[in-house]
Design a protein around this nucleic acid. Structure first.
Lengths: 190, 190, 190, 190
DNA sequence: AATGAATGAGTGTTCATTCAT
DNA sequence: GATGAATGAACACTCATTCAT
């Protein structure tokens, strides 16, 4: 027998991401994914139970990649500002370099095809960041606000900016970027 | 007769919005819209070239409603902080009270069915806000940053928060809301 | 607009029966029915909600034709033997002349796609026959047996014989037929 | 090794029957049969040419079981009535106790997947019964009618009754059963 | 011989759009 | 202008069968 190729599963996921990126979430069909991956649509069902299953796996894959990129080099007990800086620039870098995955994660988040379980597991990846936030809050560095508000000012603006950057071909100089970072830092600190 | 036509066009748009709100974007078909509007599917094609055209018109309609709500009570020459406050709370209020229109606008913005032209026209509605921003900048009240960065910190966080609010049943007290507003204000001002 | 053509509904039913007859129940697809009827598969869904609905309508149609053929010329208060004779030969005649419908009804009876409601309505067509049976029983002409046993000896043998007739090209002379009838009559009478 | 092969073939057949009984004819796939038998779908094709071939073998297997059950205890030179009685009650018993095999045999008989050859071989198993019939006819016990008519009155009614029994939860008392038997006996004897 | 992977051809069904009136 | 009928193209998914090992 032919052995199951983990590469192929990977390839199908990759193809799916590409198609979603190219044609949008709604116009992504199993047939297209198959064609993109160079396999028969039926083959996809060898590796995934159904479309929902495939999408959930992709969602987790992306979330995993995103969060691990974000948490990269994080030092559990490190100095708050330095750590925040790392996370922020990691996030920015990932968003800029993987606009695809990024937009993808966004589109995904609203789809009814991503089930609660996956969503919860996805959220779970952000533990270290949450700990940093709590530690900073206890230390009196961060403002005494809910996590949601913290994220809304620390990270959400980045999303907006990168989105603009893409659609408007806006270029961000190092200087401006630094300025944006500072606004974010100031916004969440006392 | 002219009037009757416009009424029907209007009715179809309204029906479309209702269906999208009720059943979601993906489950909205021309047939359903027709039924909701009390006309034949074929009739829709008398008033709109195709589905894309219909959606574009709706996009503009929603954008118009959103921006006019946002600009409500705006006083062209008013004091900067007061005017910003108005706009910010208008925006927040609209987002909270029209989560559907809002999500709708968001989803739409990414949809390949909304063409550049509509998108550009949609953006155009925000003239008064842009003027406020420029005036504030000249007056040394707002930071010297691009409009995109300004929006990213002034309004984008609200989007994130409202989205959370919906999915997590988070409740925002008046006090916290005021705090959030202040963070936004501080972030964009010198 | 094109007007809905009751003929077309009829034509689709007819086509379906033909296909079922030709290819068997299991190998009958909506696509085949469409091709046979000379319409697009999608058109079938204009006239029927789904495959199950179509099959149920056909089931009832066939049952109706069969039972009305069987009850033809029946005289409510007529002499028992004469009436039984009519019914029996009607049944035989229908079975011989409409082997298609007939086999069809049989195949149908076991399909999970025919729902209880249709089945019950189908059974309902046989009222006059049941009355004849009850009357004959009260008059002491028919044996005192349940209806099921009555049918089993009066009509079921005919089914077996006709089925054989078809597959073996058996020919039934008038004489033999009369003999068979008599066996049936003797079997159910005291 | 020879033995092992036959065992596996046997196991596959058994599994197929089980699946058909459990899930019904239409919902029986090669994959399911394989899983039930604990082999790969591909393995089935080592032992059978295709699905049709497999079904034909099963058909014969069931027919064999059915006819041998029917002919059980038959005494070649025994007294006609006694022998007929045995066969009749054997048949009834088998039909009641193996409703699935039974319905199976019936369904099968009409399936295009069972080819003429299998059907003919299947019919062949009934030799002893045919001989009994001929002997009885020569002895003037049975009516002078074709075999088909004989079967139609002797056995076909049982099929109808058992089918009803199943779908209507009809219960047959010993007494009624005896009565039915007598009707059958009377119907086929002078 | 045995197998799991792979697939072409099919399934029932939906839907944006066009046709014919 | 207005319509319900009609449909081609697509959808997610299944399955008997074959491939490659």
């Amino acid at each position: 027998m032919r052995t199951k190729d983990e590469n192929k599963k990977e390839a199908i996921c990759r193809a799916a991401i590409d198609v979603i990126q190219r044609d949008g979430f709604e116009d992504t069909s199993i047939a297209k994914i198959g064609k993109e991956a160079g396999v028969s649509p039926a083959t996809i069902y060898v590796y995934f139970e159904n479309k929902e299953d495939l999408l959930n796996e992709i969602y987790l894959k992306v979330k995993r990649a995103m969060s691990s990129a974000m948490m990269q080099d994080l030092d559990e007990g490190g100095e708050i500002e330095e750590e925040f800086r790392k996370v922020w620039f990691n996030f920015y870098g990932y968003a800029v370099e993987n606009p695809v995955d990024f937009a993808f994660g966004e589109q995904f988040a609203n789809s009814p095809l991503v089930n609660r379980l996956s969503r919860d597991e996805g959220e779970g990846y952000y533990g270290p960041l949450i700990e940093l936030f709590e530690r900073g809050k206890r230390a009196g560095v961060f403002k005494d606000i809910p996590l949601a508000v913290f994220s809304a000012f620390a990270f959400f603006p980045v999303i907006g900016l990168v989105r603009n950057r893409n659609s408007e071909n806006l270029v961000f100089g190092r200087e401006l970027l630094e300025k944006v970072y500072e606004i974010a830092w100031d916004a969440v600190t006392e």
